[in-house]
Simulated scan of single mutants.
Amino acid sequence: MDIEGTILAGTDFDPIEGRIVIEDGRIETIEETTTDSEKVVLPAFVNAHTHIGDSIAKEAGGGLDLDELVAPPDGLKHRLLRAASHEELVASMGRTIAFMREGGTGAFCEFREGGVEGVRAIEDALAESPIAATVLGRESVAAMEASQGFGASGARDADFADEREATREAGKLFGIHAGERDAEDIDAAFALDPDFLVHMVHADADHLDRLEAEGWPVVVCPRSNLVTGVGLPPVEDLTAHTTVALGTDNAMLDSPSMFREMEFTAKLTGVSAHEVLRMATLNGADLLDIDVGIEAGNAARLCVLDGDSHNLAGARDPVRAVVRRAGVNDVEGVVLPAETDDNS
């Protein structure tokens, strides 16, 4: 299988006119050659923080604050999740997973509510999908054992010491929300020595220094933070101190489109388009230990755009165009390792 066009290769996304040769689901070679193709080929996105069970209640809860919307155990989302049947959850999550794939996402990390049953529901929703999902169970050690790790709601909700120790002993990922509504839970989250933190909207200078010293990655979700009224994360400061990935957070509040998340982040911060694209692809892949990136030997997880679409035709800088302008309608195809060769 060959794909020709402008290829955003390597860690710097240097545009190469040429061809990607794919064999057995992996990138065999990247060849520089003249081509008439108008395609733009980039790594598939890694959505590093989602709650897609909330797809059962899109745009519910208008006017509610963060606690009223999502705080366990009685925030709106938790009440709606408890009321939904297994079949309803699977169907709604399956449609969201399909939308993510259509929009160029090749992998995602889900904080899955509902304990073991919640993990089983998303496994059923993923049964027909080639997307690589890292599912972090919540609410019990048993949910962690049934999934790829534990996704803690936040240190103000519980101390999570037992869950952290069990996750460490199992050799699995431990992520935790921190600094979303204020800074009060950040130090307690740090004390758990997490593998990564989510949000960090209210990180101060001392927190940033500690992140850098410990090497803890952070996943930011700027659109969600704006919708819930908690403010915007200090993305520029965070990227200066640690690895930062992008997530779309709660499917109840925001479409899980990485195009929208990139554009929002790029236009509301001083972070370069190249760095935002890294946040949406390579950085999340590093966090989840998934090989994403256009390099020989990597799995073929690719998003192929129509560079001659009405939206992208005439773009002078392909990386800026991908980050600040492109959208789901510009996606010509998505290539993922578990799929056949007709995806591009």
Rank of each mutant, 00 (worst) to 15 (best):
G137A: 05
H86I: 14
A296F: 09
V198H: 01
D195W: 03
V41H: 03
C303E: 09
E163N: 05
G284C: 01
I27V: 09
P72T: 10
I3C: 05
A127D: 13
G75P: 02
F108P: 04
S85H: 09
C221H: 04
M1A: 13
D342N: 13
N47P: 06
A296Y: 07
E184Q: 06
G118F: 01
E332Q: 08
R79W: 11
I290F: 00
S55N: 08
E236D: 15
S92R: 14
F111H: 06
D306E: 12
R301T: 07
G115M: 05
P15K: 07
A213T: 12
E275F: 00
R168C: 08
P256D: 10
N283V: 04
T239N: 02
D162H: 08
R82T: 14
L302M: 07
D254M: 14
F150K: 08
A9K: 10
E32H: 11
V41I: 15
K39V: 11
A98M: 10
I52Y: 08
G151L: 07
L136A: 05
T239W: 02
E165G: 07
A285I: 00
C221T: 15
G106V: 09
A299E: 15
L287A: 02
V218N: 03
A245E: 03
E180F: 04
D193H: 10
H202P: 02
E145G: 07
N329F: 11
L288N: 00
G171I: 11
E145R: 09
N283S: 06
E214M: 14
A60W: 12
V323P: 04
T50M: 10
H310D: 15
L192G: 07
F111T: 05
R79T: 11
I3H: 12
V319E: 11
E38I: 11
D2V: 13
L126M: 13
S255P: 15
E145F: 09
A189K: 00
A191F: 12
G5W: 10
V292Q: 01
G25L: 05
R210M: 12
E128S: 15
A91L: 13
H274S: 13
P256M: 10
R95C: 12
F264V: 06
R19E: 14
G10N: 10
A127Y: 12
L76N: 08
A313H: 15
A155K: 06
W216H: 13
L126C: 14
S37H: 08
I290R: 04
D317V: 06
I122M: 02
P130I: 12
S272G: 08
R301C: 00
V292D: 02
P194W: 12
V41Y: 03
L287M: 08
M258Q: 06
E263P: 09
